[in-house]
Design a protein around this nucleic acid. Structure first.
Lengths: 192, 192
DNA sequence: GGTTCGACCTAACGAACGTTCGACCGACCG
DNA sequence: CGGTCGGTCGAACGTTCGTTAGGTCGAACC
């Protein structure tokens, strides 16, 4: 792992736990064993570092998710797989995704172009889900009314798992993933 | 409105938009037309101010929500009403609730007792919903399997509305409230 | 009418912030 | 062997941070 990657990993962990503004450049540097000023050899500014984290994590998520559903014939199975993989990925990469979700508005005001770049990627994911729902409705697999609202509901549902799930709790993440996939496909979408 | 309340309102707005750490005491003071040091006449510290905001908004929400469902005979109608009122309240008070949700972890590390106090209130709300689900299951109104998981799913769903809803968009908040109530009761809980 | 007191002020504290600058040092290259 | 250069350093820049101390001023009270 290159030093640049080390910095990203350390910063992700700190940002996820304490928040972007609560973490200083010196604290990030100390976590990888260098001085604060040395960080500027890899990133022009703190905001660039945040952008790199958000962009990397968003891209990695989308590139893992979208191809994973293509093997399934029915739209119901595709979305079921998408939800399961989404919950599992968000658990494994919960730190990156916490930063991507929570600190994204930081980029919105201070680097609008970079915010739009990341938002467009997230939007493509939402659109892909919505298209699957529309296709599933046309194929008679679902009986929901509004595909757009259903897509938002499904994403809201799966993104909320990290707010409460703890490995020390009563559930395994696999159980939650399967249950939420059933809630999404069988419940929200009215799959038959 | 007392000056103390003015401070709370201004700080809520700033915290909701920029985040707790991105807002200085001087900025809060300027928003109400006084100097930064004068804030310490009303709150012993910045953390106490955040605590007051989080506690007030959490209490106000619970006290508005729980009595609103008692008039309905069936559990399905009670939960439908709860979800609708929840979505509407979270829209009207979206700033307070954004602070309550996002900056709560700030109290968790720096003021554990205060964090626990607020978390207990939120927990009582979740428990009340879960009890309604259990009772509804016993009455044969629902056909979901796991009341605890269903309660978490419903809360995740309704809390996600503020992440995407904009008054300039295609939906009215009333439409979303009704639709989400249907998704919650008819979809997640499998209401008949 | 003198006193008390709440509300607010100015000024300053030490610390931390993001960032810049110039120097150093070891590895590689010709 | 001399020179280049990526990587890191110490030191400092100006600013802002949360917070404190002490003073001012007008209204309320005895």
């Amino acid at each position: 792992m290159s030093r640049r990657e080390e910095v990203i990993v350390a910063a992700t962990e700190l940002f996820a736990r304490d928040g972007f503004h609560a973490v200083g450049m010196r604290a990030i540097a100390e976590a990888v064993g260098i001085r604060g000023s040395s960080l500027y050899h890899y990133f022009p500014s703190k905001l660039d570092l945040l952008h790199a984290i958000a962009l990397d994590s968003t891209r990695a998520f989308i590139e893992t998710q979208l191809p994973s559903v293509e093997a399934f014939p029915s739209y119901a199975d595709r979305i079921r797989q998408l939800i399961q993989a989404h919950v599992l990925y968000f658990h494994v990469h919960r730190q990156e995704e916490a930063v991507g979700l929570r600190e994204l508005q930081e980029l919105r005001e201070n680097a609008p172009a970079r915010y739009a770049e990341i938002q467009a990627i997230r939007r493509s994911y939402q659109d892909a889900l919505e298209r699957m729902i529309v296709a599933g409705m046309a194929a008679g697999e679902f009986e929901c009314e509004d595909a757009h609202l259903a897509a938002l509901a499904v994403l809201g549902l799966v993104n909320s798992v990290n707010d409460w799930f703890r490995v020390t709790g009563h559930y395994t993440i696999d159980h939650v993933a399967v249950s939420y996939a059933q809630i999404g496909v069988g419940g929200i979408l009215g799959g038959r």
